[in-house]
């Protein structure tokens, strides 16, 4: 329960600069818009797919496995870690949904101590000074190494770099954050059990909703791999969204 609460807390507790697209539009507004219309992607970022498409595991696995493919996973992950902002929407699909095929993917393991340490530090002081931001960055980069799709951490890095005045790294992390969320919200409509949003961590579902400015409520099992996450406050006519957690169970111990 704690990680979920903390995720909500973090994404709402951050000062405005942390969730704004560097220099321009508030992230929450932009991500929410792209999630609903899929037409407002950033010019510099990957353009989301026009039609929501469920990720094809077999296709992704074959694309990321060939050493001679430009989508070869180690090369793709190296670009992502290096902060390459030329990654395309399809490359993000391969990155995010290809991660469950990597040895380091352990969605059911407890969060590393460093993750909790990072989030605890921030929760204890949400107005860090420069030195504290430098420490958050240092710790955050370590956690990012171990958990490259932990959206809370990427969000926190965006915030800390922004606070340090490091626009380049702020933009880099915002690019990662926005495109991972775009990847998730392009994997289905989220509005029906047969068209869920596919995530590779339980926390990503909550983080996606909070990034849209929504208030996630209870999780209800809809099928073997799909759950319905209700909203505490309706999003227009929508009372909740469907998420597919199937990839998490691929690594069931």
């Amino acid at each position: 329960m704690r990680p979920m609460l903390l995720s909500i807390m973090l994404l709402f507790a951050l000062p405005a600069s942390s969730v704004e697209a560097p220099g321009t539009v508030p992230a929450t507004a932009q991500v929410a818009a792209s999630a609903t219309t899929r037409a407002t992607a950033s010019a510099t970022a990957a353009t989301p797919q026009a039609t929501p498409t469920a990720p094809d595991n077999d296709l992704i696995l074959s694309e990321i496995s060939s050493q001679y493919s430009p989508l070869y996973y180690p090369a793709l992950m190296a670009r992502y870690r290096d902060g390459d902002t030329t990654l395309t929407a399809h490359e993000f699909v391969c990155l995010y949904y290809g991660y469950p095929f990597q040895e380091s993917y352990r969605p059911l393991s407890p969060a590393p101590a460093a993750t909790n340490d990072l989030l605890d530090r921030f929760a204890a002081n949400i107005e860090p000074d420069s030195a504290q931001c430098a420490e958050l960055v240092s710790l955050g980069e370590r956690v990012f190494d171990a958990e490259p799709f932990n959206l809370q951490v990427i969000n926190l890095l965006t915030f800390a770099y922004g606070r340090l005045g490091d626009k380049k790294m702020e933009r880099t992390n915002y690019f990662r954050l926005r495109n991972v969320i775009n990847t998730i919200t392009s994997s289905g409509t989220g509005l029906a059990e047969r068209s869920p949003w596919h995530v590779i961590y339980f926390a990503n579902a909550i983080e996606t909703l909070t990034s849209m400015g929504l208030h996630p409520g209870r999780r209800l099992v809809a099928s073997r791999t799909v759950e319905y996450v209700s909203l505490l406050v309706r999003n227009g006519p929508v009372r909740g969204y469907y998420f597919d957690f199937g990839r998490i169970y691929m690594k069931k111990p």
Binding site: A134, V137, S138, E141, R142, D145, G165, D166
Partner: peptide, 12 residues
């Protein structure tokens, strides 16, 4: 990557 982020903070 850790060293990069710390060095970047120091340079900044």
């Amino acid at each position: 990557g850790w060293l990069r982020s710390v060095a970047r903070a120091a340079v900044s």
